Amino acid sequence: MAAAGDRKKTACVTGGNGYIASLLIKMLLEKGYVVKTTVRNPEDKEKNSHLEELKELGTLEVFRAELQEEGSFDEAIAGCDYAFLLAAPVNYTAPNPEKELIEPAIQGTLNVLRSCVKAGTVKRVVLTSSTAAVSSRPLEGDGNVLDEESWSDVEYLSAKRTGLWAYPVSKVLLEKAASKFAEEHGISLVTLCPSVTVGEAPDRKVYTTVPAILSLLSGDEVELRVLKGIEKASGSVPLVHVQDVCLAHLFVVEKVGVPDGRYICNGLDTTIAETAKFLAEKYPEYNVNTDISGEGLEKPIALLPSTKLINQGFQFKYNTLAEIYDDMVGYGKTLGILPN
């Protein structure tokens, strides 16, 4: 009979058919964790097909949960050692962002945290936010170095209401609500703020910035406007590989002594101009348009260093454009964003 200490650790990953979540589930299973995940509709075979494939790697249970339905995460989180909060509304261009994006994001986060309190077994909660909660603020001049003490300016964004303004607002407000709740209920909470996340993941239905990052290769003008919006809002195009994001999630629960708090997770600060030049050289067959001078930044005016995370002992595997883009063309073809 196995000793008590041999019990497998159990982790809940909310939003299992999301991009980062799908790879995190895969990594957890490969490390021997028992994984419980939540989706809005477990019957949707097309959206959840990657989860069926991942079940071959280990014990994976799929539960139905709805962000705004209190108690719907109870079953999935019961008995878990760790909870990774990745479920979030994705309707960035909703006609009524307060009701369709901001409120569900805050309410959903608090609902999951309430389930963690009820479970009584969760040793640490990891909330996935975004550097959009750090860098969307008026920036003067260049050489702005933003750290975990920096917050996107909710009043400024809410007053201007331009571009994807509601997304950073939702991330700031859900972070602050989660932090307050965790403090009041004695929950160990780490918030990770990944930058624009790229790289291959098991999820094949991507509703993220992957199409925008591939827009210089695909020629998709709509997605290129999204990329330009990111650069304008952030003062750079900050990139991180999805593998590094998931490794950071594992690191903050497995490394002893990592303090609660907020951690930026960013591999590289670049610009559209710099990326276009790199891609034109690496993938000449895509005829990348490098004549975008005058429209964007020549160099990043804001930097988002991951110093705090690195000081805890975390090491990034992907630090250059070549490493970060390495599997993106193949992934883009798989997703149908790039021609085969």
Rank of each mutant, 00 (worst) to 15 (best):
E46Q: 14
L86H: 06
G141D: 08
V169E: 01
L57W: 01
L113A: 03
S22N: 07
V256P: 11
L23W: 01
E175G: 14
L297T: 07
S130L: 01
S22A: 11
Y325G: 07
S150G: 06
S22H: 07
G229Q: 08
E56K: 15
D327L: 10
G235L: 00
C12K: 00
N111W: 04
A178H: 09
A11H: 00
K31N: 15
V34R: 14
E323T: 04
A65H: 06
R114H: 11
E285H: 09
V237I: 06
V196M: 13
T208C: 07
D269S: 14
E70V: 03
Y286L: 07
K317G: 14
M328R: 07
E183R: 15
H249D: 13
A159V: 09
F63E: 06
G79F: 06
V226G: 08
C80F: 05
D326G: 10
A322Y: 04
E223S: 14
P89F: 05
L192A: 11
N91M: 06
A65Q: 02
C193S: 12
T208F: 07
S115F: 06
K333L: 10
S170G: 08
A322E: 15
K160I: 04
E295L: 15
D153T: 02
A133K: 05
V288S: 12
E183A: 15
F84M: 11
S293L: 14
A302S: 12
T320K: 10
A2S: 04
D142Y: 01
A2F: 03
K232N: 05
K160S: 09
A302K: 00
E285A: 10
R204T: 15
K232P: 00
Y263A: 09
N340R: 14
I324A: 01
I106Q: 09
F63G: 08
R7P: 00
P168V: 07
R161G: 02
Y92W: 15
T275Q: 08
K160A: 12
E66F: 10
V39G: 06
K299M: 09
T128E: 02
G32P: 00
T191P: 11
D147Q: 00
K55V: 02
V172S: 08
A212H: 08
I102M: 06
M1K: 11
N96Y: 05
